[in-house]
Design a protein around this nucleic acid. Structure first.
Length: 235
DNA sequence: AAATTGTTCAACCGCACTGGT
DNA sequence: CACCAGTGCGGTTGAACAATT
């Protein structure tokens, strides 16, 4: 174990919310050195953050191709479908939702499943006799409400490029899943047509010219290998 | 208007994986 | 082959904000 590293570890790293200045610095250095060498960027940028922290900030917040704003109904639908297929493989799901991060999707899922589970619980109470209440299970091991419903694929989701054949016997329709969970046509009080994704840059900061060069290389590329596997194995 | 409760989401943590030496 | 550093992923936390009482 080299002493140089020991010294670095001892050094107090900054934590907590990022400032606008830090964001600008990080964006600049990420554009300069690429989106992989995070430890190096953390060092040379003088941010006094860990490489891990820098990566997280970039991927989840600063990346130019990120969408901001609420999930569209299509995205919500897609998340539910993909989750029923892949479970808590958030990064994998995120690859199918350009502009959305695994963190965002994870948060969305957590929030909404909990909410729906609570609604369901309420509607099932007081004489509910079933075991394993939906809001009791730990995230990641929750029973698939959608799978339990056992049904077909909704047409709205078909238009998102999901092939019905690929789902196997336990696949089900998200329409029905929503119904099962007490889901009306609108999500959270919004009608489907009502929901707009905002692409506006969230910070009151200038868009650095360096982003032009990196925005041409989107973070979310079609996962070619996955596509191949999907084709080969019907996934 | 203040207090309480619920919701959202940025950020951190720990572990697993990968590539370099 | 073993070790190490860097990176990526999924789970979790907690602060800020919104809604409700």
């Amino acid at each position: 174990m080299c002493t140089r590293r020991m010294v670095m570890v001892k050094e107090e790293m900054r934590r907590g919310p990022w400032t606008e200045q830090e964001d600008l610095q990080l964006a600049w250095f990420a554009a300069l050195f690429g989106e992989r060498r995070w430890d190096f960027i953390a060092q040379v940028s003088g941010l006094n953050r860990t490489g891990k922290s820098c990566r997280m900030r970039w991927v989840n917040y600063l990346h130019p191709s990120l969408k901001r704003g609420r999930m569209t109904p299509q995205e919500e639908c897609l998340i539910l479908e993909l989750h029923s297929r892949w479970g808590n493989r958030w990064s994998r799901i995120a690859r199918r939702l350009p502009g959305r991060t695994d963190n965002e999707i994870k948060n969305y899922w957590r929030t909404h499943t909990r909410k729906k589970a609570q609604e369901q619980k309420r509607s099932c109470s007081p004489s509910r006799t079933t075991t394993s209440p939906a809001d009791d299970f730990p995230i990641g091991s929750e029973p698939r409400a959608e799978a339990a419903a056992g049904c077909h694929l909704s047409s709205s989701c078909m238009s998102l490029g999901l092939d019905e054949d690929s789902h196997g016997a336990d696949w089900c329709s998200m329409d029905q899943a929503w119904n099962e969970m007490g889901m009306p046509e609108a999500i959270d009080g919004r009608s489907f047509g009502d929901c707009k994704a905002s692409n506006a840059w969230p910070l009151s900061m200038p868009s650095p010219p360096v982003w032009e060069c990196c925005s041409s290389a989107p973070l979310w590329k079609p996962d070619e290998e996955e596509e191949l596997n999907s084709a080969a194995f019907g996934l």
